[in-house]
């Protein structure tokens, strides 16, 4: 069970959080312009990286804020945490 440093609340146990999958997949601004393939890419296709993954987390049982995390999925080491809308820090 990780310790996650919520950018709004500080360090908390992982069980207060919900994972929200891969980060930086922006919802298309003009979905109707997309082909079925492009829409499927947005909707379902994931990098599912083994290694450094950028992902979304939500402090669901806390401040309910969403934020981003950089985590190594091969060993669950959290590399960085940053707020929504911020540029990912270099690691």
């Amino acid at each position: 069970m990780f310790v996650i440093n919520c950018p709004y609340c500080g360090e908390r146990d992982q069980q207060e959080f919900k994972a929200g999958g891969e980060a930086h997949i922006e919802r298309p601004k003009q979905p109707t312009e997309l082909s079925d393939d492009e829409w499927a890419e947005y909707l379902f296709m994931r990098k599912n990286i083994k290694g450094i993954q950028y992902e979304r987390w939500n402090h669901a049982h806390g401040c309910r804020k969403w934020f981003n995390m950089i985590r190594d999925t091969s060993n669950d080491e959290i590399k960085a945490i940053y707020k929504m809308g911020e540029k990912p820090p270099s690691i």
Binding site: R27, R56, N58, R64, W66, G85
Partner: peptide, 13 residues
């Protein structure tokens, strides 16, 4: 509520 917050905070800030 969770889903609406998600859209609000991440897609439509």
């Amino acid at each position: 509520l969770g889903k609406l917050e998600d859209y609000l905070q991440t897609e439509w800030p």
